[in-house]
């Protein structure tokens, strides 16, 4: 059957389909996309099994997981702010931060457990500790954080044991940073192409986004004269979020594509608009009550939308075999070229 055929695939193609699915040049000319920074990938050819996805899309539910990412981030960054505000004598900011951290921690635990297929077995997470599993590491970050931040918030509301409250707040601050950034690893440590490719950037993205959200929320709940640190952290976080998001969206060739398309693209454009507006409003009128509230809401919305957008982009990239096959083919071609180059050097 195959004798005399020298080509690699033997010239075979699927009887009822094209030899390879060819992708037309497709770029959504978004209003914000006019800067010409989008890496274009033209006419990629790839083969698939009846267009079916190769990897399984995550079974994680939305809004549970994106909200968990958002709330965990906001809680983590505000816990750090709260502890620092406490030791530098800003009681109102410390109070708002503790309540934000505690509320976010409790809610994020609820969302995380609700997302399990067997919620009653959530304690099985604590059977083992595995550094190779970001979810296991995350459990051991979230559990002490939740206990400390939740406890600090409860004591804040009740007004009991101020010493214990301070201590709990400090403990939560220790786990706050890892809580805000480990979620980037949680998504990146998968075979989902659009999450795995930016695997060193997602922690920074989520860290920046967490600071924007935490700063924004605490700014909205703190008297403006005490909320200076919140404003500064929010603006810095928003800037980091925007810069890193830009790299995630544009630096990874074809797997950056889902960040621009469909619902993920829309969510991320909205996220950018909210974050830019929130940061600008913070600078302009963050010292007024109404301005602080409005920019806090915008920054939190921007952060939440970023998580929803990143989540959606990953789901979209998992559902399309193109994003699994094409980068792997490119990787193989690069490796073959490198080997050919190396062998030509040694000869």
């Amino acid at each position: 059957m195959t004798e005399g055929i020298a080509t690699r695939g033997g010239g075979w193609r699927r009887a009822d389909g094209p030899p390879a699915e060819t992708r037309k040049k497709k770029r959504r000319g978004g209003r914000r996309g006019g800067r010409g920074e989008v890496a274009m990938v033209d006419d990629v050819e790839f083969t698939s099994y009846y267009g079916r996805p190769i990897i399984k899309p995550p079974v994680w539910k939305t809004p549970d997981v994106p909200l968990y990412l958002f709330l965990g981030g906001a809680a983590g960054s505000s816990s750090i702010l709260g502890a620092l505000a406490d030791v530098t004598g800003r009681p109102a900011l410390a109070r708002a931060s503790r309540l934000t951290a505690g509320g976010g921690a409790v809610l994020s635990v609820v969302y995380l457990i609700h997302d399990l297929g067997r919620p009653a077995r959530f304690l099985h997470m604590l059977r083992v500790f595995k550094p190779t599993s970001p979810l296991s590491v995350g459990t051991y970050i979230l559990s002490p954080f939740g206990a400390a931040a939740g406890g600090a918030a409860a004591l804040e509301l009740l007004g009991w044991f101020p010493g214990l409250k301070r201590f709990a707040g400090l403990v939560s601050a220790v786990f706050g940073g890892p809580l805000a950034t480990y979620t980037g690893v949680l998504l990146a440590n998968t075979a989902v192409p659009s999450w795995h490719a930016p695997h060193t950037e997602l922690p920074y993205l989520f860290g920046g986004s967490a600071m924007a959200a935490g700063g924004g929320i605490t700014m909205a709940f703190t008297p403006v004269e005490e909320a200076g640190p919140s404003r500064k952290m929010a603006v810095a976080g928003a800037a980091i979020e925007l810069v890193v998001m830009h790299r995630v969206e544009n630096g990874h060739g074809i797997v950056s594509e889902p960040y621009h398309e469909d619902r993920a693209g829309l969510l991320l454009r909205l996220a950018k608009a909210c974050t830019v507006a929130g940061a600008a409003l913070t600078v302009v009128s963050g010292r007024h009550r109404a301005g602080a509230v409005a920019s806090g809401v915008l920054l939190a919305a921007g952060s939440a939308l970023t998580r929803f957008g990143v989540f959606d982009a990953g789901m979209a990239s998992a559902r399309d075999p193109k994003y699994t096959v094409v980068p792997q083919r490119e990787r193989m071609a690069a490796r073959a070229a490198e080997q050919a180059h190396a062998s030509s050097l040694t000869q």
Binding site: I80, L84, P178, G184, H199, T200, Y204
Partner: peptide, 29 residues
């Protein structure tokens, strides 16, 4: 790639602490 990811997450966590600290110290009491 997990070691690289954990490294990034650790640095990003320190970044948050750094930004928060400078935000607090850089603000007038």
């Amino acid at each position: 790639d997990l070691p690289a990811m954990w490294k990034a997450a650790g640095k990003a966590a320190l970044m948050i602490v750094g930004v928060a600290a400078s935000a607090v110290l850089g603000s007038r009491r």
